[in-house]
């Protein structure tokens, strides 16, 4: 059993409005407690913006700047530069964004911040769609997944954002899962210790958006890792790949079968997805071996 071992510094309060059983709230709790009190968050519209709470309440102890959907990385740059100018250089500035605000509309600002190597930590809670607006496809939505804007299943594959970010040669990129919280905490701690642009991608199975049971978010995240659909790894300086877990112990079948967004998959669809995951897995292992 992977027991989480981290001090709860009361950075994230109960009573927030995440869906019951949401793995994003769980991840937020670990991330915020790992970062501690000397941090400022920048949050674009997303589930996190709602979970952080409506005025005058806040479930988050650190200051939050709620910004526009495409602006997280630019806003975080502004906060960080302002802190630098005012002599507060040690404060961590962390973006807490969704995949719509990262893969899609926020990618331009994120690419520019990464190019400037701004000293920010960017966390993307990747639930593979615009789940806060009721579940439409983003460029993170995988092939064949049914969403509100792809009722017959998405016709194109999920964007590989880690590779795009790696091409910027930023110092640190890592993937995390709410089924591996000690690993998440360790990666956040490592990222916060590095100067420059750091990006953490967290897979978040969305209960209503993916159509999984209320108690199945963490289990689904674990299956995503165990099947190799969402591998856990790190990329340092854009070229040094390290697998956090370099083995797979199950096929994609069980992972897909328990999600209603994949309810229309044919056997051919499933075998095509398996072939693609196998190919991507080998490619990733190849990168890590070099």
């Amino acid at each position: 059993m992977d027991m989480i071992d981290y001090p709860d510094g009361e950075q994230f309060s109960p009573g927030h409005v995440a869906c019951a059983g949401c793995a994003e709230a769980l991840s937020l709790r670990v991330i915020l407690n790992t970062l501690g009190a000397d941090a400022i968050a920048v949050v674009p519209p997303s589930c996190t913006a709602v979970i952080c709470g409506g005025y005058p309440l806040s479930s988050v102890s650190i200051p939050v700047q709620h910004t526009t959907l495409e602006s997280a990385a630019a806003s975080a740059s502004g906060v960080k530069r302002s802190l630098n100018a005012l002599g507060k250089t040690n404060t961590t500035v962390v973006c807490l964004a969704g995949d719509g605000g990262t893969y899609d509309i926020g990618l331009q600002a994120l690419s520019s911040a990464a190019e400037r190597n701004e000293d920010i930590l960017y966390v993307c809670f990747d639930n593979e769609g615009y789940m806060n607006t009721g579940g439409q496809k983003s460029s993170s939505t995988p092939l064949n997944a049914i969403t509100g804007s792809t009722p017959a299943g998405k016709l194109s594959r999920k964007k590989n954002l880690v590779e795009i970010l790696a091409a910027h040669r930023i110092p640190y990129i890592a993937t995390c899962s709410p089924a591996h919280l000690s690993d998440m905490s360790a990666k956040i701690k490592k990222a916060a210790s590095i100067r420059g642009t750091k990006v953490i991608m967290v897979i978040i199975p969305c209960l209503p958006g993916w159509g999984v049971a209320d108690d199945a978010a963490v289990k689904t995240a674990r299956m995503a890792v165990d099947s190799g659909v969402f591998p856990l790894y790190e990329v340092e300086d854009g070229v040094d790949y390290t697998m956090t877990i370099d083995t797979r112990n199950q096929s994609v079948n069980a992972y897909l079968k328990q999600q209603k967004r994949y309810r229309n998959l044919s056997d051919k669809n499933i075998s095509d997805i398996q072939a693609d995951v196998d190919k991507e897995w080998e490619y990733l292992l190849g990168r890590a071996r070099k």
């Binding site: 700047q65 495409e70 630019a74 975080a76 502004g78 906060v79 302002s82 600002a109």
Partner: peptide, 10 residues
């Protein structure tokens, strides 16, 4: 966006 954030940071 950076202007707004920097301004709000003081």
């Amino acid at each position: 966006s950076a202007c707004v954030a920097a301004s709000l940071t003081g």
